[in-house]
Every structure is written in C-alpha cells, then in structure tokens.
C-alpha cells in the first residue's frame, strides 16, 4: 500500500471513530455531571432511549431541529427527574431505581418509536448535519509536498465533522469549566464528595443534586438523539444498542473528568470499529485478538481494570466522588 493511501485510510478511520464516539461522549458528560453530585444513575440507557425517541418523534413531526433537541432534553430530563424524586426525596435505592428507569425508558421509547419507524430524518435536518463548518478549502495547497498531504490528513480526520461533533467537544470544555472554575461547580463537587460538609457550608445539597441529575439526564437525551437523527437517520428498536452501559463504564474509565472523557470516548468509539478495519489487513485477519468480537470486550475489561487499580493504589480521584451512591439526609438520628 502506498504511504499516502495508508495515511488516508488512517484519517478516515479516525474520522469514523470520532463520529461514533459522539453519543458516548455526550452521555459521559451527562453521567459525569450526575455522579459528581454523588448519585449513581444506572438509567443512562433508558434516558438515552427516551431522548432519542422523543427528539426524533418531534423532529419528524416539526422538521425543526431546535424543537427536536428540546424534546430530547425534555424527555430524558423527565426520566431523570423521576429518578431524582425517587432517590433524593423518597430515598429509594439508587441501583434499583436506575434499573427501573432503564426499563421504563426503553418501554416508552420503543412504543413511541413505533409511530416513526419508517420515517427518516427530515431533509433539512440531514442537510444541517451534512454541513462541515470547519472543513477548509485545500485546493490551493494540495500540490505542495509534505505540507499538502499533512493538511489533507488533518482535514480528513478532524475537520470534516458536523455541528453535533463540535458541539459535543465544546460541551466537554464547558462542563470542565463549570466544574473547576465556577462557584456552582465547586459546590457540586463538594456535595458529591462530602454532602455533610457542603451542607454545613450552607450549600443547598438537595437542590444541587436535583439540578445535576436532571441536567445530566438532559445531556443523556442529546446523546441518544444523535443516533436516530444523525447517525442512522431513521428509527430502529433499541437504537442506542447498549451505549448507555458503555457510558457508565466510560465515566469510571475517565475518572469523572469531562476533558479525559473526550479521549476516553474516542478510544471506546475506536474500539467499536477497529476490529472490522483490522480484519481487512491480510496479516491480521483470522487472528482472534484482532477480531471485533473480542475487541468489543476491551472497554468493559479496561473499566474493570480501572476499578481494581483504584482499590489497589488508593489513588486520589480514582475512586470517584466520595459520596457516590451514599444517600444523605440531614436530620437523621
């Protein structure tokens, strides 16, 4: 294979990996926000499905992308609100409630989805997401040796993406900024680490938790919406295909950090497709370890490794928010 062709193949692979990583990234941001408040919401899959179905339904009916996104946030946010009500106010078990939310969300999504099964994403919205706002015109530099191909490579891999992709990247930066640079972010982290201390400092623990859970749910809704609206451009049952569970793993893998989430989501996204590409290489085809079916286990295995390492090394920040999964009630005695 000639070097330019090989480089182009790599670039195309990177581009695909980025595209497939977007729902993982947005979902991870949402679940990170939720878990930072100290609540483990295992209903990510359900919320992604809720967002995907309500958003796609509205998109088909109104052809309006903004309304569709609002609907996705509203649908998933409502599911998250239900979870918050159950776990924050009614003190129900977080794990069980999260699983119930997954079942409920899948039920609503697959029922609602039935009515839009054979529809595809409206033309105007497809056009919108076909836009590549950062894609430069390289016709002038193509002939230049070295520089030309390098620019070509960068363009193909990183600059030929749609608004959703860049939106997700901006979202990561914004969430990191929120968590580490704003008062509210500091308060949220404190609530997740040690709610009693936060409470004693005058931070409204319950309000922060509701906000983070519902906000996190809304992001999960946008993550889900990407699948029918942009990626597949039509509805199929259980369209998120277990990505909600990969998100739960990813949050641990990137250790609750929105910026690391970009790399983590990209890695998991790349693992999702790399096997198929590798099989095309004659030397590797037939090798078990490069089979996509084996590679599909890696994200979960790597997450388990992170869990174990967190215990063995007792490293700060590896264990997650200090109060994750632990309920807090002020006047309990």
């Amino acid at each position: 294979m000639d070097p330019t062709g090989f480089a182009m193949m790599i670039a195309l692979f990177l581009a695909s990996a980025i595209r497939i990583s977007i729902p993982l990234l947005i979902g991870t941001l949402g679940e990170t926000l939720t878990e930072r408040s100290g609540h483990l919401n295992l209903g990510v899959e359900g919320m992604m499905l809720l967002g995907a179905s309500t958003g796609f339904f509205v998109a088909v009916r109104t052809q309006n992308v903004l309304l569709a996104m609002l609907a996705a946030m509203g649908g998933a946010g409502a599911g998250a609100l239900l979870y918050a009500l159950m776990t924050v106010t009614f003190r129900a078990n977080q794990v069980v409630t999260g699983l119930a939310l997954t079942i409920f969300g899948a039920g609503v999504a697959n029922t609602l989805g039935k009515s839009v099964t054979n529809q595809s994403t409206p033309r105007n919205i497809q056009d919108l997401f076909a836009l590549q706002p950062l894609h430069p015109d390289l016709s002038g530099v193509q002939g230049i040796p070295v520089v030309g191909p390098v620019l070509q490579f960068i363009d193909t891999a990183f600059l030929q993406h749609n608004l959703y992709v860049y939106g997700a990247l901006v979202g990561s930066a914004l969430l990191a900024f929120y968590l580490y640079r704003t008062h509210s972010g500091l308060h949220l982290r404190a609530v997740g680490e040690n709610p009693a201390a936060a409470d004693a400092s005058g931070i409204r623990v319950v309000a922060m938790r509701y906000g983070a859970i519902v906000g996190g749910g809304m992001l999960c809704g946008l993550a889900g919406l990407y699948m029918p609206l942009v990626h597949i451009t039509t509805w199929v049952e259980n369209i998120t295909g277990g990505r909600g569970w990969i998100v739960v793993a990813l949050v641990i893998f990137v250790r609750w950090d929105p910026l690391k989430a970009i790399l983590g989501a990209f890695l998991f996204g790349a693992l999702e497709i790399v096997g198929f590409r590798l099989q095309a290489i004659p030397a590797l085809s037939g090798s078990i370890f490069f089979s996509q079916y084996v590679i599909d286990m890696y994200p979960y295995a790597m997450t388990i490794l992170v869990l174990i390492l967190a215990n063995v090394r007792r490293k700060k920040g590896w264990q997650g928010p200090g109060a994750l999964g632990v309920p807090y009630f002020r006047e309990e005695r």
Binding site: H183, L186, R189, A190, E193, N194, A197, S201, I203, G322
Partner: peptide, 17 residues
C-alpha cells in the same frame, strides 16, 4: 466537616462566593 480532596482555599470559600 471538610472536603478532603479539595484545597484549603476551596474549602474556605465554598458556599460564599
């Protein structure tokens, strides 16, 4: 009632800004 993984400054200013 301190948040151990945070800095003194974060703990002190928490909830006030």
């Amino acid at each position: 009632k301190l948040v151990e993984p945070m800095t003194a400054c974060d703990n002190i200013s928490m909830g006030t800004g």
